[in-house]
């Protein structure tokens, strides 16, 4: 079964860039995109149109999202007995110390800043693929709780 990454990102431009970068890094990866916090939670909880959604192997979460913002999504994920197992990596443009601290306080697995230059961004995505999706052992949550 191919690895599934949930990307929670509202900026269409960033979504496309990430998609392109993952395609370069690892074409076998499936990318599902949620463009706000509410949709992200619905997907993770198999609600509404997502009733058959599988659990992702990795969540890439932006902080500044409309409706429900990334910090709240992170809180819900890490409170949930099953969802909290899923490695959740913050991928944001914010370099604020407060955001970094808060994210780790809420048990984010990792905090990454989106580089400004394209080649560095692509390199970062390659690193994510290399570390989280190749080297790291992932919890088996496919079959559900």
């Amino acid at each position: 079964m191919p690895l599934l990454v949930l990307l929670v990102e509202d900026n269409a431009g960033d979504v496309r860039l990430t998609r392109e970068a993952f395609r370069e890094a690892n074409p076998a990866i499936q990318l599902h995109v949620a463009c706000d916090g509410v949709e992200a939670m619905a997907f993770l909880r198999c609600e509404g149109s997502h009733v058959n959604a599988p659990y992702p192997d990795l969540i890439l979460l932006d902080l500044n999202l409309p409706k429900m913002d990334g910090r709240e999504v992170l809180l819900h994920i890490k409170e949930d007995p099953v969802l909290k197992r899923i490695p959740t990596v913050i991928l944001t443009s914010s370099e604020a110390e407060a955001d970094i601290l808060r994210s780790y306080d809420l048990h984010a697995n990792c905090y990454l800043c989106k580089p400004v230059q394209l080649d560095k961004f692509e390199s970062l995505v390659r690193s994510i693929n290399d570390f989280w999706l190749t080297k790291a052992k992932l919890p088996r949550t496919r079959q559900g709780a």
Partner: peptide, 17 residues
């Protein structure tokens, strides 16, 4: 400066692509 970065990132990245 911070808010200017994001649209700029789009311009820079896509022109490079």
């Amino acid at each position: 400066s911070h808010d200017l970065q994001e649209p700029l990132r789009m311009v820079a990245s896509y022109t490079q692509l």
